[in-house]
Design a protein around this nucleic acid. Sequence first.
DNA 1: TATGACATGTAACTAGTTACATGATTCA
DNA 2: TGAATCATGTAACTAGTTACATGTCATA
Lengths: 180, 180
Amino acid sequence: MSRVECHDGDMSLRHAVLGMLEDEPGSGYDLLKRFEQAMSNVWPATQSQLYGELGKLESAGMIHVHAEGPRGRKEYEITDAGRAELQHWLIEVPPTAAPRNDNLLRVYFLGAVAPGQARGYIATMGETAQAREKRLEELEASIDWGDDNASVYGRLVLEWGKRYSAMYREWADWAVTQIK
Amino acid sequence: MSRVECHDGDMSLRHAVLGMLEDEPGSGYDLLKRFEQAMSNVWPATQSQLYGELGKLESAGMIHVHAEGPRGRKEYEITDAGRAELQHWLIEVPPTAAPRNDNLLRVYFLGAVAPGQARGYIATMGETAQAREKRLEELEASIDWGDDNASVYGRLVLEWGKRYSAMYREWADWAVTQIK
DNA sequence: TATGACATGTAACTAGTTACATGATTCA
DNA sequence: TGAATCATGTAACTAGTTACATGTCATA
């Protein structure tokens, strides 16, 4: 029996790139900066990965070079095929259930160290969460929110981050009281 | 200049295995079942990965074959070197800041589909979270909790999962009202 | 003219997934 | 004796990271 094709994978970087280009065309260099700014908390990507993915997306006909600029700059634009793939992924591909979490993995094994160290570790988790919460609040205040899609959906993601951080901090405060 | 050694990586699977063997010795087959049951929400691992990691850990002297059984069964036990590595990781290795989240990545790009579909997607996220919350509550009720480390720290992780799911559900309820 | 920002790409590696492959033991 | 479970392992792949490598353009 020959090899059966049965690969779909997540390939979410692919969709992150399509989503950014759907919003606005840009070069690899542009996308890299957009990833660093807007995406780093949700889907970090490295320069090397981005350029590789742009090449693959172009070969697959999901994006195309729309304009060229100085220094070999290639500005990509999403194609109809790319837009279709993005929408398919958004609506039809089942999201990941629960991602790996090495913070929680550590909590599982905290019995391997002294109770004081365990409390210290959890307290640090709480402080980290509090710092993130503060940073997100400052970010929210610094942005001029509008009625456009980027504002509406960007705010939903930001709000999720704030609630996540608050939940984390409250959990940590409670958890340290549970370790005798 | 020659290649500089600068790799540490996360290698959390390694530490998950050490943590499980610290709790109790076992074979690859045992660990696979323990990963499926207790760990699948925090750090899933495949059979192939587990056997590979056990081989590497044995070569590194962090675990050793403690007993052999029928069908080639090899029961591993953690060594002092393994215990030291586990404690080092627990306390000294900085945890990951924020993991990738493809659910939120989708939210970012929901402007690419119709508002009704966007609301539908977020509503489904909320229902999924609610189902997980319920499942965790049932799990909590079904376990006979004691005062041992596994109970104390296992309960902290479970409580985190419950709070996470509740936060998610509440966020989704709010988020659908934000999409016009 | 030298520095920094712009701009793209490749090589070598680690981590993780799916599928393949094999064999021993138990028990109905 | 046939099926389920126990038990281990390998091959080929995808995704992601770090480091290396190169070259252009603006401007102080």
